[in-house]
Amino acid sequence: MSAAVPPAARAETDLAKMLASLQIDVREGEYVFVSAPHWEALPRELAQASIVEAEGPTCVLRREHADAHGLGYDFVAAWLSLRVHSALQAVGLTAAVAQALARHGIACNVLAGYHHDHLLVPTARREDAIAALLALRGDAAPAPA
């Protein structure tokens, strides 16, 4: 049996509300994706995120940790977190974010957490990505009557 969630902590499902209240948190540093055939080849304790794929585990590490362990990577990213507690069953947030970034030619890798969605975008495009995402707040405003 699951514990009841207090109303104030409930996740949002309404796309317009999610977009209108969207805030962006920037995690300091640079992040990279690394992969290996087995966990033993990765500094798992340093992983900021990880996923198991058929080809082997993938971890997201701070760039300096990957460098210190001699791990190769080909994408250096800024980590942006959407400060909106979207429900796991919410529809449209990922699509809206992806479309906004795609309109500006910004690559994005999405990690979904229980409380927030996290975006890894090219470090050099961090500010462009933030501006594109914050513009979604205005796009969500109701049309004047």
Rank of each mutant, 00 (worst) to 15 (best):
A8R: 04
A9L: 15
R10G: 02
D14L: 11
D14A: 14
K17T: 11
K17M: 12
S21I: 03
S21D: 13
V26G: 00
V26L: 11
R27N: 09
E30L: 13
S35R: 14
S35E: 09
P37I: 07
P37M: 13
H38V: 07
W39K: 08
A41M: 06
P43A: 05
E45G: 03
E45Q: 15
Q48T: 14
A49R: 04
S50V: 04
S50T: 07
I51L: 10
V52W: 12
E53I: 12
E53Q: 12
G56N: 10
V60N: 03
L61M: 09
L61W: 14
R62N: 09
R63N: 06
R63T: 05
R63W: 01
R63A: 05
H65V: 11
A66E: 05
A66T: 09
A68I: 06
G70M: 09
L71M: 06
L71F: 08
F75W: 12
A78V: 07
W79V: 09
L80K: 08
S81A: 15
L82W: 04
L82K: 11
Q89L: 12
L93Y: 00
T94S: 04
T94K: 05
A95I: 02
A95R: 13
A96F: 02
A98C: 11
Q99A: 14
A100W: 07
A102C: 09
R103E: 15
R103A: 13
G105L: 06
I106D: 01
A107W: 03
N109L: 05
N109E: 02
V110Y: 15
L111T: 08
L111R: 11
H115T: 13
H116R: 12
L119D: 09
R126S: 02
R126G: 01
A132E: 02
L134P: 06
R137V: 03
G138V: 03
G138A: 09
A141N: 03
P142E: 00
P142L: 00
A143L: 14
A143V: 02
